[in-house]
């Protein structure tokens, strides 16, 4: 028997999902559904958009208007939806390669405009769907099938990228910290402007295996031990933070939202013509 949450927000006839055993994506997707439930928004006024990749299969399991687009372009499609019908709550699910490599340009400009979209990046540090190639978030010197001798690219910090490009709400959590994913996504949805949540996921099949990270459980233990909440980090020394990463609410500074700004132009022109 599926839970009430799954019954209400998932297309149960489409389950089980296609993800590998041990993948963190199912946990994150459930956490997003939980955030939507808590936000209390009408199901018919939500649209979930994705690109291409493992994470981008998530919308197919969720019972909303769902749009599975082309690789990297989810935010551009979502921008059209939001702009044409601002009353729709638009949530975009992307992978790390999808959002920051092929879709990097769309990402920084959606941040810059502060358009009312909630973007959630499932970051498993690898291209999973194509079989384990290194991505812009694969840690330096780690391996992928296209980095057999170690990856020499420096990894992106997705949250810093989004915050500096202009996103007005930014947070990070992990599949281990599932309830934090829910609360951050809930806050992100209630932010009028552009929000980005990075959800660290685990790919035991490719990233884990290539880099000897052990089972899905040990990869989750790594998430538990390496993630430091931003409030706790404030009291810690730089030495103690070595090798750790921050989770929690990393930026919350509301600014005027893009489609509202455009509506002001429409209203002003209407007034002037009367």
């Amino acid at each position: 028997m599926p839970s009430v949450l799954v019954e209400n927000y998932f297309r149960t006839e489409k389950l089980p999902q296609i993800w590998c055993p041990g993948c963190g994506h199912g946990i994150i997707t459930r956490s997003i559904a939980s955030a939507i439930e808590k936000s209390g928004i009408d199901k018919n006024k939500i649209c979930i958009v994705s690109g291409i990749g493992c994470s981008s299969r998530a919308p197919g399991y969720l019972d909303f208007n769902t749009l599975h687009t082309t690789h990297g372009r989810a935010l551009a499609f979502a921008t059209g939806i939001k702009m044409a019908k601002p009353e729709i709550k638009v949530i975009v699910i992307m992978g790390d390669g999808d959002a920051t490599a092929i879709g990097g340009n769309h990402l920084i400009h959606a941040c810059r405009r502060n358009i009312g979209i909630t973007a959630i990046v499932y970051n498993n540090s690898i291209y999973g769907m194509t079989g384990g190639q290194y991505s812009p978030t694969t840690p330096k010197y780690d391996k992928g099938t296209t980095a057999p001798y170690g990856n020499i690219d420096k990894a992106f910090d997705i949250c810093k990228l989004a915050a500096s490009a202009g996103a007005t709400y930014v947070g990070r959590a992990t599949a281990y910290h599932a309830s934090l994913v829910t609360s951050l996504v809930q806050n992100a949805i209630s932010n009028e402007g552009f929000s980005l949540i990075e959800a660290i996921s685990m790919c035991p099949t490719y990233y884990g295996r290539k880099n000897k990270k052990g089972s899905a459980v040990s990869m989750m233990e790594w998430q538990k031990n390496s993630a430091i909440n931003i409030s706790a980090a404030a009291k810690m020394s730089p030495e103690a933070l070595e090798g750790k990463f921050l989770i929690g609410e990393l930026k919350n500074s509301p600014e005027p939202e893009y489609t509202n700004e455009y509506q002001k132009i429409i209203d002003r022109l209407k007034k002037e013509s009367q």
């Binding site: 082309t70 921008t79 059209g80 939806i81 702009m83 044409a84 019908k85 340009n105 400009h109």
Partner: peptide, 25 residues
Amino acid sequence: RFMQMEDEIGGMAAIIGASLTGAKS
């Protein structure tokens, strides 16, 4: 509504998104 997108690919994507809401694009 008019939007100048970040590139041509985004322009094409955005009109598809808008059309799905019913707007001729």
